[in-house]
Nucleic acid binder design. Structure first.
Lengths: 239, 239
DNA sequence: AAGTGGTCTAGACCACCAC
DNA sequence: TGGTGGTCTAGACCACTTG
């Protein structure tokens, strides 16, 4: 059955993975407790947790902080270059999206470094916006957004739980003419992990984006941290 | 100095991270042995390894299998939609690239599933090509490539450690007219990890790519596993 | 041959979540 | 309030790398 020379934790992984694979593709239950699983596989908690961490890396299971381990739902397919947005894409894929505004403040640029992506200097006006987004009730994404407030006066008075691109278009006539996207694999810091209710250091995809208008002026800088098991990026290029 | 309520492993992370940050940006040494660090921080190996794993997730350090922990060199910036290739991009960024052909065989399609990305049926001719690519002597990328052999007869007779796109162009007049790219965060399996000389289950970015020619026929299916700390994806889209 | 990382055991205490 | 996950201790043996 199992490769005899493989470490114990690999055998546990395989056994759990097989078991999860048999589940209904629409049912994503909590796993039994660590102590229960430890007994089941006749091992210690340390070893069991190595196995669980491995399955977490593979993306098969995830943990909700202090609540336990759960089977991971399917990833959301996301095209960073598409003329779409989070909510529309989620609903098109039969999922239930939600957006919460965590923090929303008209402010001024704190430093040269903060303003650099938007070409702003210290003291220039901007809007800071932090949002948390969920799929089917599970928090999957944290966003820190900076907006050039001089280009869009009164921006913070709109309902910022909706599509920012739509607001830019309809109220300010600003279109996304160019976009620069950067993708990195990294880990959540303590605060981010807490906000998403996952373990400190959870793996994530960090996507940052600078949006330029028709006159090639950067007007929005977007930083997104996605749980690594919640997103698949799909894009296409024609030449 | 440290947050008193933070777990010990977080304090160890911070201390090591600070120390690494002070290093020269061109020097990427091996860390002291785990037992040495365990003494230095007056803790046990289990706890120390949690800290090291955390720094590994952050991308600050990596491990070379059974040889120890090392400071991570800068990431390679990679544009999957650019008219460029691995070697050119690496050299442009002042790095020393290398490519090894691990396996190269003219063969036939084994199953419906294997041939699906290229629209091939069981028994159709294809070329299987596995390559390993390195930056400055460090293995960072594993590739499994399938090529439609009927579209490019004798493909396997070329030097397949060079740019496949160039071979397609120069010998068969086939250009990349469209590309579909998928990016997932996942983990290496045992075999892949061994081939890259890293620990089983190392975190990676999985990039798959289907290339279509001028007549919209898929001719190459490329699967790439990048060490997560070796690559940053950067792309731009104009509208 | 010595030392290293990879794996594993058998416990422990605490803070938090769900009942 | 009981059980859970989060964290930590103090050992151990083995396979492999390095000198």
């Amino acid at each position: 059955m199992n490769n005899d020379n493989a470490p114990l934790y690999v055998a546990i992984c395989e056994s759990l993975a097989e078991h999860i694979g048999k589940q209904s593709p629409r049912y994503f239950p909590k796993l039994p407790s660590e102590r229960h699983l430890m007994d089941e596989f006749s091992t210690t908690r340390v070893t069991l947790r190595i196995a669980l961490s491995q399955l977490e890396r593979d993306g098969l299971i995830y943990r909700s902080n202090r609540r336990g381990w759960f089977v991971t739902p399917p990833k959301l397919t996301f095209d960073p270059t598409a003329r779409s947005n989070f909510s529309i894409m989620a609903m098109q894929q039969g999922r239930r999206p939600a957006t919460e505004v965590l923090n929303q403040q008209p402010a001024t640029c704190r430093s040269q470094a903060e303003g650099a992506p938007l070409g702003l200097k210290r003291g220039d006006k901007l809007v800071r916006l932090d949002r948390r987004r969920s799929i089917d009730g599970r928090h999957v994404l944290l966003e820190n957004i900076l907006i050039n407030a001089d280009m869009m006066p009164g921006f913070a008075e709109h309902d910022l739980s909706t599509s920012l691109t739509t607001i830019s278009q309809e109220f300010y006539g600003i279109e996304v003419a160019k976009e620069e996207v950067t993708i990195n694999a990294t880990a959540l810091n303590r605060f981010q992990a807490e906000t998403l209710a996952v373990a400190d250091g959870s793996f994530c995809l960090f996507i940052s984006r600078i949006r330029y208008d028709q006159d090639n002026r950067p007007f929005e800088y977007d930083q997104e941290w996605w749980l690594h098991n919640a997103i698949e990026i799909h894009t296409r290029s024609e030449r």
